[in-house]
C-alpha cells in the first residue's frame, strides 16, 4: 500500500483524513481516517451508500470544508496537514481542482465558449487566450460546433461535455466528479466516462468519480468503497471503455 502511494504521489494522496461535525455528545464523525491515492491520468470510482461520507470527502478534497485531521497532498504540494497549508483556497480550487457536478450547472447567461473560458479569465489570463484554450477543449470533446450556443440550447450529454471542458480548462492536476452520469442514459453515461478517461490520460489528470451508477461502476479499474467514514480499495473490472 505504501509503495502504491509513493508511486502515485504525483496525483492526489490522502492519508488518515478525518471530519467531525458538531461537538460533544452530538458530534458526528463523517470521515474516520480515509486513505486514497490517485495517479495522474487515472480515473477511480468512489462508491458507497447514502450517508457513508462520499459528499463530505468530496467537499474536503475540493477545499470547500475543512477536515478535522489528516493529510492531503496534491502533486508534491501539501495542501492540508492538520490544517490548511495553502492560504488562498479560492485560488487552489480555481487553478488546481476541476469540478464536474451531477447537473452540468453551466452559467445560463454565458455561451458555451465563455462558460469554459470563464475559469482562465478568472485566473487573470487574457480573454483571447482563454477562449482559444476553451475552443481547443470543445473540439477535443466534440462540441466545437455548439461553441456559440447557449446552455439551454444543448442536450444533456452536450451540457455534460461542456462541464467537463470547464473542469479541464485550467489543466488542474485533479478533477472531482460528483455523480456526473446520474441524469444520463446508459449510452451517454458510458460516453461521459470514456471522455473522462481520454481526457485524464491526455492531460495527465487524476479523476475521482463519486457515483451510485451501476452502469458505470464496472468501467473503473480501481474503486474506493466508503462505508461509515472509512475507505477500502478494490480492483475494478475496467471494461466497456474500448
Amino acid at each position: 500500500m505504501a509503495e502504491l502511494m509513493t508511486e502515485r504521489a504525483q496525483g492526489i494522496r490522502i492519508e488518515g483524513l478525518r471530519k467531525r461535525y458538531g461537538r460533544g455528545d452530538t458530534a458526528v464523525d463523517a470521515l474516520r481516517g480515509v486513505d486514497m491515492a490517485v495517479a495522474p491520468g487515472e480515473v477511480v470510482g468512489l462508491v458507497g451508500p447514502s450517508g457513508s461520507g462520499k459528499s463530505t470527502l468530496l467537499k474536503c478534497l475540493g477545499a470547500v470544508i475543512e477536515p478535522s485531521g489528516g493529510r492531503m497532498t496534491l502533486g508534491d504540494t501539501s495542501i492540508y496537514d492538520e490544517g490548511w497549508r495553502i492560504p488562498d483556497l479560492r485560488a487552489l480550487r480555481r487553478d488546481k481542482i476541476g469540478f464536474v457536478f451531477q447537473a452540468p450547472y453551466l452559467i445560463p447567461f454565458l455561451d458555451v465558449t465563455d462558460n469554459v473560458a470563464l475559469l482562465p479569465m478568472l485566473a487573470g489570463r487574457p480573454n483571447g487566450e482563454s477562449r482559444e484554450r476553451a475552443r481547443e477543449l470543445l473540439a477535443a470533446l466534440d462540441v466545437a460546433h455548439r461553441a456559440r450556443a447557449m446552455p439551454s440550447q444543448l442536450s444533456g450529454g452536450e451540457q455534460q461535455r461542456v462541464a467537463i471542458a470547464r473542469a479541464l480548462v485550467n489543466r488542474p492536476p485533479v478533477i472531482l466528479a460528483d455523480e456526473p452520469t446520474a441524469p444520463l442514459d446508459s449510452e451517454r453515461a458510458l460516453a461521459v466516462i470514456r471522455i473522462l478517461n481520454r481526457m485524464a490520460r491526455q492531460y495527465q489528470t487524476a479523476v475521482i468519480v463519486v457515483t451510485h451508477d451501476e452502469k458505470i461502476i464496472p468501467t473503473f479499474e480501481r474503486i474506493y468503497h466508503i462505508r461509515d467514514g472509512r475507505t477500502h480499495e478494490e480492483a475494478g473490472e475496467g471494461r466497456g471503455l474500448e
Binding site: 475540493g62 479560492r90 480550487r93 480555481r94 469540478f99 450547472y105 452559467i107 475559469l119 478568472l122
Partner: peptide
Amino acid sequence: IREIAVLKLIGTRNRT
C-alpha cells in the same frame, strides 16, 4: 443561488 454557488466553488472572487 446555484450559479453563484458554482461560481464561488470554481474560484470566483467575492468582489466579482
